[in-house]
Design a binder for these strands. Structure first.
Length: 313
DNA sequence: AATATGCCCAACCGCCGGTTG
DNA sequence: ACAACCGGCGGTTGGGCATAT
């Protein structure tokens, strides 16, 4: 048989916490810690609450390192960037914002940030589901990501890598293989499988270093699937970013520049140029060299660079 | 001033993977 | 091996507050 139930559901208090309850919980944890057992905690602390409720109250409100108050522009950017990168994995996003809880970020996104982006730019960043090599799974649950293979996370710290790692340049352009696909991603970066290959564009940067920039942060971005590509990709994103080419020959694109324009409100090429994301020589040359990489090459490339970031494979 | 509407956010709900008995 | 619990997560709800009518 299994274990006994954690609490008498009929005999636990629900609803808002009183200051007295908060004080009891805080005091208990201060003296004894959580002990790794939330279920027995309320009884020990003298609270008529479910352990789950205590855990939530502590993590989302009572913890001493919680940051209250408005979100900064930088936090906005990180949230937007990560949302388009990994979707609504609020706990992962929260891990990048010290003092913020997943619940806070979720609420902030749903009530303010979405509207802010809509009012500023007339659109909201979208997260496009990765297509799965496992046809039975198309859910957005975290497990589906691990099933799909490695997740390459957005880099939140400056990166650079040497141009001598760029091999066998070929020339290609992005095409929209599915004109009926209206779900145009602004920025498309997801879990990828081991057997997928990548198209990596050369990026605007120094002579020997390639990077893309978002505000004062540089990001290495991988992405795209499902053969979606908009005209704006060709217009703005042709030479910048990292693109994924599936073996199926379906070519897809994200538009990093387009996304950066949205996030930062850069409205013309001059602003993009100022940000190091555009150069006038590219104006009539959207068909810049792309380079083929496998995942292992990318891993090697990153590990051999000065990268000090949280790339997840 | 009274009422309606919209917004915010703390808390709940239900699901999932891992663990335990 | 299996059933049930635990911890963690994301989605949703509903009460309180602010603003509009």
């Amino acid at each position: 048989m299994g274990r006994t139930p954690c609490c008498d559901k009929a005999n636990v208090k629900k609803g808002p916490w009183s200051p007295e309850e908060d004080a009891k919980l805080k005091d208990y944890i201060k003296k004894h810690g959580t002990g790794g057992n939330w279920i027995s905690l309320p009884q020990k602390a003298g609270l008529k609450r479910c352990g789950k409720s205590c855990r939530l109250r502590w993590l989302n409100y009572l913890r001493p390192d919680i940051k209250h108050g408005d979100f900064s522009e930088e936090e906005d950017t990180i949230i937007c960037n990560l949302y388009t990168t990994i979707g609504s994995r609020w706990s992962v996003i929260a891990a990048q914002l010290p003092g913020r809880t997943d619940n806070d970020i979720k609420n902030y996104w749903n009530t303010k940030l979405k509207k802010k982006l809509t009012s500023l730019h007339g659109m909201v960043p979208q997260f496009i589901q990765p297509s799965s090599t496992n046809s039975s799974s198309s859910s957005s649950s975290p497990s589906s990501y691990s099933n799909n293979g490695p997740l390459i996370s957005t880099l939140l710290e400056p990166i650079s890598f040497s141009s001598n790692l760029l091999l066998n340049p070929t020339t290609t352009t992005t095409t929209n293989n599915n004109p009926n696909n209206n779900a145009t991603p602004l920025f498309n970066h997801q879990a990828v499988s081991q057997d997928q290959s990548f198209m990596m564009s050369t990026m605007v940067g120094g002579e020997n270093n390639y990077h893309v920039k978002l505000g004062d942060r540089r990001l290495l971005v991988f992405g795209g699937d499902q053969g979606s590509c908009s005209s704006s990709d060709a217009e703005y994103g042709g030479g910048i970013g990292v693109e994924e080419k599936r073996r199926s020959s379906s070519l897809s694109s994200m538009s990093f520049v387009e996304w950066s324009r949205v996030v930062n409100g850069w409205n013309n090429e001059k602003q993009l140029e100022d940000q190091g994301m555009w150069n006038s020589n590219m104006e009539n040359n959207y068909s810049t060299p792309f380079l083929d990489y496998g995942l292992e090459e990318i891993k090697q490339l990153i590990s051999s660079s000065n990268c000090t970031t949280n790339v997840l494979f």
